[in-house]
Simulated assay, not measured.
Amino acid sequence: MSHTVRKLFIDFEKEEQWLNDMAAKGLALTEYSWARYVFEESGKGEYIYRIELLEDGIKGAKSVEYLQFMEEAGVERVIMNKGPAAHNKWVIFRRKASEGPFTIYSDTDSKIKHYRRIHRLWMSVALMEFIIGFMNVGLVALDYIGIVSNINLVMGLLLIILGAAFLLFSVPVHQKIKKLQSDKLIRE
């Protein structure tokens, strides 16, 4: 029997933990799209899930090679159901728990690289929101009386707020990068 859950995550580690908690309850993720997860009943704890942000889209040359490597290692990619899947960089992997522990990052440098990709993503989206938001607010100055000004002002302010939210999302990721770098220096 299929179970659909609608849930939105900002933190991939919390999403990963939630997927593993669902697997522990006997629900295996079979497909996902933005904020929509479809589960099938399975053995309790049958799978271990990991989430990764790829360097380029799913169809990119590096990603195709990497996904093939993961498949050869006995790791499945959960299929994204809808949306621009070819341009999607987020992937959810799963592997049978009976095959032992499943980690993607074997060293600190690869973890740092992954967190940097996530940080760049949040910062890029924040910058885009700020630029478009301030452009909309700037248009108000050109059309100081009229309905277009009101719409531009509201939309501009909303985009600026959204940009600030994405900027805030990047802060914990940046802190994790700094902590990993610090830990790496201590070990060297």
Rank of each mutant, 00 (worst) to 15 (best):
Q17Y: 07
Q17V: 01
N20D: 09
A24D: 14
K25A: 08
L27Y: 14
L27I: 02
L29F: 09
L29N: 01
L29G: 03
E31H: 09
Y32A: 04
W34Y: 15
R36H: 10
E41Y: 13
E41G: 10
G43I: 14
K44W: 13
K44H: 12
E46G: 09
I48K: 08
I48P: 06
Y49K: 05
R50F: 08
L53E: 10
L53F: 09
E55W: 15
E55I: 09
D56N: 05
I58S: 08
G60Q: 04
G60D: 12
A61H: 14
A61D: 14
A61F: 13
K62Y: 15
K62I: 08
V64W: 09
E65F: 07
Y66N: 02
L67Y: 02
F69T: 05
M70R: 09
E72V: 01
A73Q: 10
V75E: 00
V75F: 00
R77C: 05
V78Q: 02
N81W: 11
N81M: 07
G83L: 02
G83V: 00
A86I: 06
H87W: 15
H87Y: 15
N88R: 08
W90A: 08
I92C: 05
R95L: 04
A97Q: 13
S98D: 12
P101Q: 00
I104C: 07
Y105M: 06
S106L: 09
D107I: 07
T108G: 11
T108F: 03
